[in-house]
Computed example of a mutant assay.
Amino acid sequence: MSIDGFDIARSLVCERFPRARAAWLGGSTVLGIATPTSDLDISVLLDGPPAPYRESLRHRGWPVELFVHTEEAMQYFLEKDRKTRRPATLRLIGHSLVLLDSDGTGEYLQQLYAAQLAAGPDPLTTEELLAARYGITDRLDDLAGCVDDDERLLIAADLWRATAELLLTGHARWTGTGKWLHRELATFDRDTGTEYAKALAHGVRAVARGNAEPIAETVTHVLNIFGGRLFDGFTAQGPV
């Protein structure tokens, strides 16, 4: 990233949070994948109020997303990351540049969360895997029977998401939403020599042109990795 971005982020932290224990700059600008509309993702750790809160603003011409935490709030979001297997807070701090570190917390948490990111999420439970297989099978059936072009395209987009999530979580990898789901899958492909990200995106584009076969073929291949289609006999326990 540019030195200007780091300096601007640090100046914002010093001006707004003179008593901060630690602050980190994460996101696309640090990872080297920023676009012209990317913002500065800044996480800040305070001992108490006004934290916790989130704020969007502009600072010296840069769009900024501020994530202001207490220790308790940070732990809440980290537990949410682990439960959903979407490492938003883990990534923002684990893959970051330390902007401020008044007591050693900045470097310590950065290294701790980087190690947790590298270790990956918990593996899928048997119940989660069965539910994922059933959900994707159901969407495949919807795709095959759909006669409305708009509905077919939306089903394909949902299949892209569900299949990408199964591939990643089924291999004990982190997942994400939107562009981050695609980025996680592309990283998985680079690590494994596969091309699922490209195949699934191509499948959605093919559906837009009226051809559902490519995405159905790719999704079926992924299902077969984890036991195949599932409908008959599937059950799910309701809430107690």
Rank of each mutant, 00 (worst) to 15 (best):
L57P: 13
K83S: 14
A156W: 07
K80L: 07
D103N: 08
H69M: 13
G135V: 10
T163V: 10
V204K: 09
A9P: 14
G176D: 09
D150C: 14
A212F: 02
V68F: 00
E65C: 03
T84H: 02
G94T: 12
L40G: 08
T89L: 14
S28A: 06
S28M: 01
L45P: 00
M74V: 05
G26A: 01
G106E: 12
R16I: 10
R60Q: 12
T35F: 08
A212G: 07
T192Q: 09
L167W: 01
D189A: 03
D148R: 01
L185P: 01
G61W: 01
T218I: 09
G203M: 06
L143E: 01
L109F: 12
G145A: 14
V219C: 07
A199N: 11
S38V: 04
L66Y: 02
L97T: 06
T105H: 08
D122H: 07
Y108K: 14
Y113F: 15
T126D: 11
F6A: 08
T235H: 13
E65W: 00
K179P: 11
K198T: 15
Q237H: 15
C14N: 08
V240I: 09
L143N: 02
D103T: 10
T105I: 03
V207L: 14
L92M: 10
D191V: 06
G228N: 06
P52K: 05
E79T: 12
E15N: 15
G32Y: 13
L124M: 05
P123C: 11
N211E: 11
T192E: 15
T177I: 03
S43I: 04
G104I: 12
R190Q: 15
Y53I: 04
I33D: 07
G26T: 05
N211K: 02
V207N: 15
L159H: 01
R82Y: 05
G227F: 02
A20H: 10
I155S: 00
A20I: 02
T89E: 13
R229C: 06
L230S: 10
I215D: 00
E165W: 07
V204P: 10
T70G: 06
R85H: 11
G228Y: 03
D148E: 06
L112V: 09
A119H: 10
K179L: 14
T175N: 00
L223Q: 03
D142F: 03
T163K: 09
K80T: 13
T70V: 03
R19P: 05
L124S: 08
D103I: 09
R10T: 15
A197T: 03
R16D: 05
P52E: 10
T37H: 15
Y53M: 13
G135R: 11
K179W: 12
W180E: 05
L153G: 08
L124F: 11
L140H: 04
E195Y: 13
P50Y: 07
F188T: 11
R58G: 09
D101C: 15
S102G: 06
T169S: 12
R183V: 03
R54K: 11
T137H: 08
W24F: 10
K198V: 14
I3V: 15
L99R: 00
G26F: 04
A20W: 04
K80S: 09
E128C: 12
D142S: 01
W24M: 12
V222C: 02
L100T: 12
R229L: 06
